[in-house]
């Protein structure tokens, strides 16, 4: 099976000159289509930096990072935008737009795809919200929803565009155990149905069981690739 994410000898550091702070050292990892990979490790180990490079949010210049067959090392903005548009994101904070309803928030992802009509967008967004168990909360604004519900809306937002990759950064950190497990459970189930690859960074050892593979990052180096 071809690797969707293929990283070779990636080095990355912050700062320059004497203040150079290496964050990622010689990272090599490849993730296949449909795989659910959990990346764990202590704070400061470089997990989040790694995620931002894979997602095309941060420019790296040493090594090779191929995502969806695009080389991201020293890439142009267009290449990165192209990768981002095929990537779903879930953050620790839900980051939903407060003025918009759940339905409108989810539908924002689809507004980037010009070929759809408004009706198609709203139908797909509503279907996705139903899939995450919020079929009865379509027209609620974020502040009318609980923390777990909000995170499920952001999962719906990440998945509705049928992305090939979902990147998640501590998606359960602000949730209690039950909502956290529900949220990642839904995430995994839907991702499997859509054949989406998931790279999830977490401290939360309660959710390790959803992973096909667990990777540990320490001091910028992969311990058990």
């Amino acid at each position: 099976m071809p690797a969707l994410i293929d990283v070779h000898n990636l080095d990355f550091s912050f700062g320059s000159g004497e203040l150079t702070q290496p964050v990622l050292k010689n990272v090599t990892i490849s993730i296949n289509k449909g795989e659910v990979v959990l990346m764990t490790g202590p704070s400061g180990s470089g997990k989040t930096t790694f995620l931002t490079i894979i997602g095309g949010l941060r420019q790296a210049s040493n090594g090779s990072v191929k995502v969806l067959d695009q080389q991201l090392i020293n890439s142009t903005e267009q290449v990165k935008v192209k990768v981002r548009q095929q990537t779903g994101y879930i953050f620790q904070q839900h980051n939903l737009l407060k003025p918009l309803t759940a339905l409108q928030n989810v539908s924002m992802t689809l507004e980037m795809h010009n070929h759809m009509t408004e009706r198609e967008r709203l139908t797909q967004a509503a279907d996705m919200l139903k899939a995450v168990g919020l079929g009865d909360r379509l027209n609620y604004k974020p502040e009318q929803l609980s923390g777990g519900q909000r995170q499920r809306v952001s999962i719906a937002r990440a998945l509705v565009g049928k992305p090939r990759i979902v990147l998640a950064d501590e998606p359960t950190a602000s949730l209690d155990k039950q909502s956290g497990q529900d949220a990642v459970g839904i995430l995994k189930q839907l991702a499997k149905e859509l054949g989406t690859t998931i790279l999830l960074v977490t401290h939360d050892y309660r959710i390790l069981d959803i992973a096909d593979r667990v990777v540990e990052l320490e001091d910028g180096m992969i311990q058990n690739a």
Binding site: G55, Q85, Q86, T87, G88, Y89, F91, N95, M112, A158
Partner: peptide, 15 residues
């Protein structure tokens, strides 16, 4: 006020 929300949309591919 919408800094984080806009950044999220940017991550999703909004320019």
């Amino acid at each position: 006020n919408y800094r984080n929300e806009f950044a999220t949309l940017k991550a999703m591919g909004y320019q």
